[in-house]
Amino acid sequence: MDRLKDKIVLVTGSARGIGRAIVEKFAKEGALMVFSCDMGPAEFEQANVRHEILNVTDRECIKELVKKITDEYGRIDVLVNNAGITKDNFLRRMTEDEWDAVINVNLKGVFNMTQAVAPLMTKHKYGSIITLSSVVGLYGNICQTNYAATKGGVISMTKCWAKELARKGAQIRANCIAPGFISSPMTDVLSEKTIEGMLERTPLGRLGTVDDIANAALFLASDESSYITGQVIEVTGGMTL
């Protein structure tokens, strides 16, 4: 249970759902400290988890948090960009506010976090950056122009970082996870008919769980994936086959 032994981890969007599962999994796997970050409060039982209030669109707040972690631990070994929102609408009806809100959190927020943490990883020539994308970012979806744009965008940024941050022998990796239909607060609001449609498209015949995604993140955060970078791992139950 020590696949992340002594690692310092920062996870955004972690008060519930996938982010929370990742925090709890990483803490269980021996991380020295996992910093859970979200817009609202959250409580964790593990002694090696510390929750911080953070808005990924607030660059000054991010800067202060990274400095706080650096002053105490000197490094951040793993960054998980999980914070994200949806504001779905048909293209013809999507408002500028709906577009801007999703772009600011899902795309610019990922940029903000990574830009703040990457110099610290570069200094130590080590790190793993994991960003939650989506199959929507790869294949598109009705009513999700804004969301798809951000989830495709983080894939492109990740591939840039995989090349840029590994220069001069630095062992800094950047990868994405693209979940399929996952049982989470985002899917809890969907109708039974919609869920049935999802299951029909998924060969394994079930919704994924937050632990399915946390397990993929654990692999990418650990040294077991030390030769994997610039990749998108689909966790979909086969729905994209």
Rank of each mutant, 00 (worst) to 15 (best):
A47S: 12
A149P: 08
S14A: 15
I85V: 15
V110D: 01
W161D: 03
D2I: 04
L32H: 11
K163I: 14
V135P: 04
L199D: 13
C61T: 05
E164W: 09
D188K: 11
L165W: 08
I195N: 08
A83T: 06
G152E: 04
G237F: 02
H51I: 06
M239L: 15
Y126M: 13
K67M: 07
V11G: 05
V34E: 04
M186W: 07
G17D: 08
V117E: 07
G84K: 08
A116H: 09
S134R: 07
A216K: 01
L138E: 13
D2A: 12
T240M: 15
E60H: 05
F111N: 01
E200I: 10
P41Q: 12
N55S: 14
S36L: 14
G19K: 02
S191R: 01
D223Q: 09
E196T: 06
A162D: 10
G137D: 04
A31F: 10
I18F: 01
A83Y: 03
K125L: 09
T236L: 05
P41T: 10
N215F: 05
K7T: 09
F181N: 10
R59K: 15
G19C: 12
A170G: 04
D2R: 13
I62S: 01
L241N: 05
A214D: 02
N81P: 01
N215Q: 13
G197K: 14
T131C: 08
T122F: 00
I177S: 00
D188P: 03
A83W: 00
T131V: 08
I62K: 01
V9I: 15
I130S: 03
K68G: 09
M239A: 03
K151G: 07
V34C: 09
V11T: 07
A214K: 05
P203H: 10
A47E: 15
Q144F: 06
L132E: 00
K193D: 13
I62M: 03
K68N: 14
L32V: 02
Q231I: 12
K108P: 09
F219C: 11
A118G: 10
S226P: 00
T12L: 05
L132I: 15
A101S: 15
K67G: 04
R93P: 02
I129W: 01
G13A: 11
I22C: 06
S184V: 12
I182V: 13
G109R: 07
M121F: 13
M121K: 02
Y139T: 12
G152A: 11
P119Y: 10
K108A: 08
T194C: 09
N48F: 10
Q231P: 00
V235P: 11
I22F: 05
S36A: 14
G169K: 08
G197N: 14
F90R: 03
Y73Q: 12
I155Q: 08
N112D: 08
I213G: 09
I129Y: 00
V80W: 06
S36M: 13
K25F: 03
Y147G: 02
R167F: 12
G205N: 03
G180T: 11
T187C: 09
A83Q: 03
K108F: 10
T114Q: 04
L54T: 04
A21N: 07
V78Q: 02
A21L: 09
V154A: 03
I172G: 02
Y227E: 05
D100V: 02
L54W: 06
Y227G: 10
A214F: 00
E52Y: 02
V189E: 14
S222E: 07
